[in-house]
Amino acid sequence: MPETETAEPSRAATDYVPLVRRIARGIVRDPHDAEDAEQEALFLILKHRNDFQERGSFEGWVRRIATRASLKVAKRRRLWLWLLEEMPAQPAPAADPDRLGRLYGALGRLSVQERAVFVLHYQEEMAFADVAAAVGCREGTARNYAFRAARKLRRWLGDLA
């Protein structure tokens, strides 16, 4: 899971659109807000591409920017989302064919940090050290968020198979 890519700032920033989109949609969830986060991240990547220092992979740098932009947008909406609590979803039947939909729905019930860590570690397969750097917390805290997120998701989703 640790990043093995080499630094490649010369690669077109648009090549990273799918990566940025995955992270933004995973963390922010609301389609319009996710689009805002995606655009902000891509703008920052284009703007600072030449400032990239080859201390890690370019993809890791892109992930960090995408995560921070997504967290910024998600936190901006936090009060609003707190005011409008999500009603508990109807228990889905065990043989629900759209298991990705169920997981995506359950992700919305996690806290922003838990969701971000889950998306980066489980979905993007980033190492905890990189997740912590992207989210802006300690590695132990990131592990804790991931553990709590996974425990909650297992409880909510039961058997997804």
């Binding site: 995955r22 995973g26 990705l100 939909g101 995506y104």
Partner: peptide, 19 residues
């Protein structure tokens, strides 16, 4: 889910109420 998010994110109906 990550692969799906790139193209067509699952539609999750969310019901909300004022806390």
């Amino acid at each position: 889910l990550g692969a799906r998010l790139e193209t067509d994110p699952p539609k999750v109906p969310v019901r909300r109420r004022v806390r």
